[in-house]
Design a protein around this nucleic acid. Sequence first.
DNA 1: CCCGTTGTCAACCATTTGGTTGCATGACGC
DNA 2: GCGTCATGCAACCAAATGGTTGACAACGGG
Lengths: 123, 123
Amino acid sequence: MTDELSRAFAALADPTRRDIVARLAGADASVGELAEPYGMSVQAVSKHLKVLGAAGLVSRSRDAQRRPCHLEAEVFDLMTTWIERYRRQAQERFVRLDAVLAEMGEQDEPYDESRPRQEGAAS
Amino acid sequence: MTDELSRAFAALADPTRRDIVARLAGADASVGELAEPYGMSVQAVSKHLKVLGAAGLVSRSRDAQRRPCHLEAEVFDLMTTWIERYRRQAQERFVRLDAVLAEMGEQDEPYDESRPRQEGAAS
DNA sequence: CCCGTTGTCAACCATTTGGTTGCATGACGC
DNA sequence: GCGTCATGCAACCAAATGGTTGACAACGGG
């Protein structure tokens, strides 16, 4: 749990925290406001917010006694970038596999069983 | 940790598991192959794969003794959809705030201090 | 100046997680 | 059939998580 990406994913792994994020996307809110809908103490929500804050997903400011929470979009970009990168890569490989299979149907080469079909193993 | 989205985010919250996903995006692999680079027992990697499997991120098949792991793209879509929805919403709100501030600068109404500027507080 | 409101900190507890080791099982090669 | 390699399963352990309660700090209003 050292890096930012791990903290971000871990933060969103909790349904309560995802709900908090969903509500903060609509409007900034104080801890008390956020805590109301859940059958949960304010301290527990405060803990959740600390997790979200450590992940860089929300920031806090000061307004008298209140500490309003604000959603930060930046880290969300980090996550989508990471996910999309590998999703696309996997999908491309899937398409390529289709092509290979189609080619194998046309090719005279009749499927060499002894060849251990290694496809660019990671270095 | 009941729903699929929670399992998916939790699965990617671990650097080892993200690395496994990254390598599986390049090519399918067996448990033994995946375990090699890490200073970790094969059983530990097997556990990680069980987590990724429960999250629907990887599937297993059978090839003699080997149980090759294959990346599934579907759940990745689920995550990006979720993230993008709220990221966009937050960003729109940010833009709208800018518009409101600009409007306040042009308006004749001279910033009423007594009005407690509530911005659509959640019901 | 004291009080209520708002939120954090600390201690505590149950559950989950991420690793270990040891053992069982299943599919080959001989 | 037997040894062996690749996995899976169970028991165990340390550390993190998600909740509780109680005490305390900061701020604004009477």
